[in-house]
């Protein structure tokens, strides 16, 4: 698979990254190199091998009891918010 400049722009856009002209070039090059390596892995015969959905394959079914424990006080929760109002996080308006 070949990564094009448009693909980099698209992914950057989805990730809300603003890239300079040089960075876009660099990303295109590096992503292609990474995918080249993955392509190499694709040459391996993996018939009959279970997909690795999780790196900790032996760790399964980790759950907790349904119990309420107070988390953060509101002042603490809002402490690092760039903007807050009426006990809420204030963000740029989202709906027209």
């Amino acid at each position: 698979m070949q990564i094009r400049r448009e693909d980099v722009d698209h992914v950057a856009d989805l990730a809300r990254l603003s890239l300079s002209e040089e960075e876009r070039e660099k990303m295109t090059r590096e992503l292609n190199s990474i995918l080249g390596h993955v392509d190499k892995l694709n040459e391996l015969k993996t018939d009959g091998v279970q997909p690795t959905f999780h790196v900790l394959a032996s760790l399964k079914n980790v759950t907790r009891k349904d119990e309420v424990i107070h988390g953060l006080d509101r002042d603490r929760a809002l402490q690092n918010a760039p903007s807050q109002k009426s006990g809420c996080f204030a963000v740029p308006k989202t709906v027209e």
Binding site: K85, S86, G87, C88, F89, A90, V91, P92, T94
Partner: peptide, 13 residues
Amino acid sequence: GLSADANVSLVDF
């Protein structure tokens, strides 16, 4: 709601 400012939305988590 709580936001009287037309330029911001407020988030309750």
